[in-house]
Design a binder for these strands. Sequence first.
DNA 1: GAAGTGATATCCT
DNA 2: GGATATCACTTCG
Length: 178
Amino acid sequence: MRDTVEVGRSLLGKVLVHGATAGRIVEVEAYLGEGDAAAHSARGLTPRTRVIFGAPGHAYVYLIYGMYECLNIVAEPEGKAGCVLLRALEPVAGIDVMKKRRGNKDLCGGPGKLTQALGVTRDHYGADLTRGELRVEEWVGEDFDIGVSPRIGISASKDSPLRFFIKGNSYLSRVSGK
DNA sequence: GAAGTGATATCCT
DNA sequence: GGATATCACTTCG
């Protein structure tokens, strides 16, 4: 569990690159395997969640509510479940492309939105994020403070402080409409 | 505030 | 093998 948390924190500030588009990771959530009722992996290994139990550094993309993909990065070593959900990005490249795809609205301020903006689909399920078209890159930038809070939009384990974000960043996700 | 969307997992026959 | 309950969200009212 600690490893997943560490990976999540270390992902903050890095950049997710997909072709011409790229975004800085400003908000993530850790999803553990054992003892985390909110994680897909909590109920064991299934065809859908098998990537979470696989090698770290790979993408776990799933379709939720029929229309939206969510992008996770596997964090734990093979055999253990644990992944980090990317919730929000700060657009840094290919913004015009994102706007075209998203219709000029909020580009990356939510798990389903950021995948649309970057063009991430289930085709990237299991992809290696250290190389290839879709990848995560280091980013040398100014220092930032990391904030912690409970996760958003789930029904189980609401109180676990497993959401990490860059303090003060204005591209963080918001809970709809409110 | 509520509905809609489709894949998955868990029943039920 | 087939049906339905669930879901880590977004959009529209």
